[in-house]
Structures are given as C-alpha cells and as structure tokens.
Nucleic acid binder design. Sequence first.
DNA 1: CCGGATCCGCACCGATACTG
DNA 2: CAGTATCGGTGCGGATCCGG
Lengths: 216, 216
Amino acid sequence: MPTSRSYRDSCGIARALDVVGERWALLVVRELLLTPQRFSELRHALPHVSSNLLSDRLRELEHNGVIRRVPAPTEGHQVYELTERGRKLEPILRALGDWGIDAPQPPGPAALSATSVLIFLQGAARPGPEAPPTTYRLELDGRVWTVILRSGRAEVQPGEPATADVSLRTDPLTFSALLTDSAALTAARADGTLAVAGDLSAVDRLREAVSGPFSY
Amino acid sequence: MPTSRSYRDSCGIARALDVVGERWALLVVRELLLTPQRFSELRHALPHVSSNLLSDRLRELEHNGVIRRVPAPTEGHQVYELTERGRKLEPILRALGDWGIDAPQPPGPAALSATSVLIFLQGAARPGPEAPPTTYRLELDGRVWTVILRSGRAEVQPGEPATADVSLRTDPLTFSALLTDSAALTAARADGTLAVAGDLSAVDRLREAVSGPFSY
DNA sequence: CCGGATCCGCACCGATACTG
DNA sequence: CAGTATCGGTGCGGATCCGG
C-alpha cells in the first residue's frame, strides 16, 4: 500500500516534499531523466530498493503526476516515463547532485547506474568548442547510448548512433573510472571489463572534457 | 539516536539525499535560511515534528556539516545556523519550493512559518524598479523582520529597521493572505489578527509587487 | 524471466510524558 | 527552555512467492 503522510505545511518546499520527499522517490525520477525505463531496468539501476517499495513509489509518483506508465512502442511490455511536470525536476536534481558531489562516499560497495554516470558526464563535460565533434557508441548494462561531444558540451541520447568514432562496452563503474583516471583505459581492457573498438584517443578526449581546463 | 542509513549509491544525488534526504531535514534547513534560530523557535515553526526527532535531525545535520550550533551573541542560550555548505542548499530549496507551489495543498489545517512566507515574498516580489523604496517593520510570531522593497526586489532581514514606512504585527498565515487578497487587509484588521501603523497603502504595494505585472 | 505481490522483522517515526 | 525517555505504529529492507 502506497504511503500517504504529509508535512501538513503550506510552504511550497514542504508540498514538494510531500510528493517527492519519500525515500527513493527522487532516485526513481533520476533514473527516468534520460529515457523511459521498465520495471526491471529500474530494479537493476537501484539494486538496494525492494521490489514492493519500488512498486509503491511508482504508483505514488504516477498518482501525483510526476511519472506515467505507457506501453512500449514496439514491444508488449510497458515503461515508466516522466511527465512534463516530472521533467521540471531535472534542474533541481542536477543542482542537488552537484551539492552531493562534495559529500562523503558511502562506506562499502556502492551502486552506480548508467543514468547516473551519463548525467554526470552531461553536466561536467566541457569539450573545447573548437574541437571536431566526436560520436561515441556506449553500451552500458546492455543498453546502448549515443554520446556526442559537440559545440562545447556533451549530448547524451538513448539508442544507437548513426555512425560512431568509437564504441565502448563496459559497466557504469568502469566507465566512470575512465572519465577521471587516465590509466583506467588500459587496465580495464586488460581485465576484460571494457571492450573498445575504433578511435582509442577519443576516450582520452572524453576524460579531458570532464576534467580539463574548460570544466570551470 | 540519530538515523544512519544510506542509499549506498555513488551518484551525487544519492549522496546528497544521504545527508538531507531524511524526513524533516530539508525543512529544518529552510527554517534557517533567513536567520539562525533556537530550538523552541524551530519547534514553533515546524509544529508537527516531534521534539526527539527534531533533536536527532539537528544532531545529524550538525554532524554532516550542514548546520552548526553557536552560542547566541547577547544571551545565554544557543542557536542553530547554516554553515557555508548548508547555505549552498538555498537555490535548491527555492527551486523545490517553486516546483511545489503547483502541488495540491495538504488537506486539513496546514502550518505556515514566518520563514516560509518571507522566502516566498523574497522570491516572488518584483516591485517596479522606478518605485520609491519602501521599508516595512514586520512582527511575525513575536519576531521582528525588516522588509525593504527596493530596486526591483524585496530584501528581507531579521531585526528592527532603522525607520519604517509601515509597521505590521500579525501571524504568518494572515500575512500570507495580505499578499494575495486585496480584501484581506480590512478583514484582518477588523477581527484583530492584524495590527497596522503607518502608511496603509504600502501594504497594497506589497501585494502588487507579488502579484503584479512585474512578477513574470 | 518479467512484473510485480505477500510476508515479516526492524528501524524509523510520531505522540506524549518527563527532566535538568 | 532545551532537550531526553518511552512506547506504539508503520514505513522500510530483505526475502520469498506467484501469474503470465
């Protein structure tokens, strides 16, 4: 049964928290920022949420107009996607993520979803505006993304690119390491957690775009 | 005993929620946005939080570097104030409040703190830039605030103004009504929930600054 | 296997009472 | 005034089960 408790406060902040303040709610919204996802994908992206709670949150967020449940276009199943109202949470979540970057890492093994890294990449990458556009085919957790470094920023889209300068297949954690550690590329190729094809130097440009002088 | 559970997720959003995602935490931060407050003031501003939970949250937020506990300058007691890190949550809370404005009002009687209305006023008021500055002495819940309509925005400060065009004494809910309802002024004066002295027309300018053509 | 639903134990929460 | 102590209820976490 979905939760229904309120702060009983007229303030807009409290009313917002009445809707998206319950545990896991904002992380579900985060997962839907880049593309609609199905139940099992959300479970995989948020491995520490129990299925009943995820089910409750989805129902609650749907009831409050933040997400909607739609049949997937080509297949038989259904997916969850943000409504226009839910999409308005995007700048808030980005700001919250920037604030949380300075918070200590949780102890022990921590999850990292594909959406999380890609949102970080999208927000942090500042490729030199004069650099030629570079297109990446990125396969993370079995899903394909298109990343384009172009005109001073990183564009991230779900699905296959028309053409790609380089193709990567790995997990989100390894990909995250690629973005910050110049030695991670060869290490990850060696132990098989990363498969690369195409222009290897494009990976370095990705890292430089995130950590480089254009970052700030 | 303070809560200590984590999303165990490396994403910045999740780490931010590990710090300020527990129930009531962000509302405590909201209360401290305009001025430091003491324990009893926080209890009065958040009447639905139990004292033990408030105590836990304050300890937790202090431990995580969001607030700090300092001795009040002139008196014997102590107050809670935001740290520099805590203050960085201000734009996030304002954005969240804007988002929550479109959420339904909670059913039944709802609280409204002085800080909440003043934050709303500060964010929504767009007085005409050419209008002469107006200073208000505002007494809400026994605490005095200075509000100045000047150069296209509303400045809100704790404490007594040097001089004031008008003085108001009322509760936050009534003051909120003054900001949106042109008939509320005479009604509130009639039933004694509002005491006014000085330039009455200045109250109208306050409401016009919030709802007027300069609002958007 | 996917998309949940059911069950259970516990930590968190909410309300009240109590204390220095 | 500024919390602490206590206690019942419930949201949450973890596991298992079930229909398609």
